[in-house]
Design a protein around this nucleic acid. Structure first.
Lengths: 268, 268
DNA sequence: TATAAGCGCTGCCCCAAGGGGAGAGTCAAG
DNA sequence: CTTGACTCTCCCCTTGGGGCAGCGCTTATA
């Protein structure tokens, strides 16, 4: 029994285009080719081979790999190595996609959270903050160096990040150059590693003000919040915090006019 | 400050080829192109955009998708939809690769098992078989219909298959056309579904003989095993089993001369 | 036996996301 | 002014085919 390419295509569920390609690549050669007309005819053995090719394709082998396999081997026990290799490839792909999925998920979660609460409109507020687990990287230097700290943290924590980036300020006064700062992230869990300390950050009562606009103009908001504190004669605690509710994102830099930074000064 | 394409390539870790492609596709257009020489020059804003593009590429967006996104949007909160869609895509890919991985794993496991025991060389043996959980699809018909049964089972069980394909024979005698057969697979777990019954198959003592060669010649092995049983005056139980130690595989049909089929006749 | 519908053939262009290289022009430093 | 490093455009190649044009072949029916 011999089949024309159309019949064979229906039998094997391989497109005619694919069959011609496989012929050209000498992966699946028709049992008979009419020399004068060029018509391809396939037989039962071709069907068997086509099935093998289809399965290997499902298993994500490339045509080049398939060609090698079907030329050299004719039994599963002979291609154990290749199967093991392929499985490793696939596990790698899975791991990679899982990382991507988690990264995207983090962005989605944070953005959704931001959308939920349009926050009481930039007024000073007294509130309770809960204790949380954080991973931070304390450093001395300029404020502009903090970005690197966040980069380091994000790379090492990746999947465990559980909230918005924050900075802790250990100086009582404003320092231009030699500030004692700790960029940090809330995390689900984690261990201390090179330069990163994971620990509980105690909550408590704080005075909070959300600053809207570029970070360079945050001084004005600090002025407001301290004048409020002086008025009320509160005693402040160290460290104070900045929570980056909305800043340069993972994907876009965004518009600095819309950045939101919450200042939290803790009091006794 | 403006950068030549080479400098910009080093800054952004994007290849020159890619940069030229992105220019052509109007995804990342240099801030300045010298009209007479065609030299491309990039600026700081290009760096920002390049970072965005890189991140989106890491997240598995195509250039076409990226183009749409960067033309229309400039903040993460605006592309939540796209991120959610992309995450779905990625979850699908993960699920698909996981299925492939499990399928390959099954083949590897079975082949490794086959390699381990070259089986006592095709002699009649009395042995104990343990109770196992199986999923089967009992049917009446010709032996040649059994293949379809296995296909159905494999498709529905997929990941839960835990051993070699078997057939249970419920007839005391040989039947050509109307045999009462149950193709089945050992499984890890499972529930009854359309036409598939999952249950424990009791173990016990059996007379076993491994038949080597094409299935069509299995009659000779049956003759041997029954003459042994008669000699010993054992009382046989129903159903008897055939275990397909090595038959047509998932990938290759293999050579029928090397097929191995174990006949198990259970006795009291 | 003629004819038309339906197949099949080759050859060409296309997709994504670039890689490699040829041949020619340009830039910057000595 | 030269030289070496850089950049330009153009073309071909990759994977696994899809789509179409223009032609020839087959086969059933009139």
């Amino acid at each position: 029994m011999k089949y024309s390419i159309g019949e064979f295509s229906r039998i094997t569920s391989l497109s005619i285009k694919s069959l011609r390609l496989y012929h050209e690549k000498e992966i699946l050669v028709p049992s008979e080719v009419d020399k004068s007309t060029g018509y391809r005819y396939y037989n039962e053995r071709n069907i068997e081979l086509a099935r093998t090719i289809k399965v290997l394709k499902e298993y994500d082998f490339s045509l080049a790999e398939i060609k090698e396999i079907i030329i050299e081997f004719s039994d599963e026990s002979e291609i154990l190595e290749q199967l093991i290799e392929k499985k490793k490839d696939i596990e790698k792909k899975i791991a990679n996609y899982k990382n991507i999925s988690l990264s995207i998920d983090l962005i989605i979660t944070i953005e959704k959270e931001n959308k939920m609460k349009p926050e009481n409109e930039f007024e000073i507020e007294e509130k309770e903050v809960e204790t949380m687990l954080i991973a931070g990287s304390r450093m001395k230097g300029k404020y502009s160096d903090v970005g690197k700290g966040f980069g380091l943290l994000a790379k090492n924590l990746g999947r465990e990040i559980n909230g918005k980036a924050m900075s802790l300020y250990y100086d009582a006064e404003y320092k231009e150059n030699d500030a004692d700062i700790e960029p940090c992230f809330p995390v689900r869990k984690g261990k201390d590693t090179e330069g990163i300390s994971v620990r509980e950050l105690k909550g408590g009562k704080c005075i909070s003000l959300i600053h809207k606009g570029p970070y360079e103009q945050i001084g004005e908001s600090y002025r407001k919040i301290f004048s409020y504190i002086n008025e009320k004669s509160y005693t402040t605690l160290i460290p104070s915090r900045e929570v980056y509710i909305k800043g340069p994102g993972m994907i876009f830099k965004g518009n600095p006019k819309n950045y939101l930074t919450e200042i939290q000064i803790f009091i006794q």
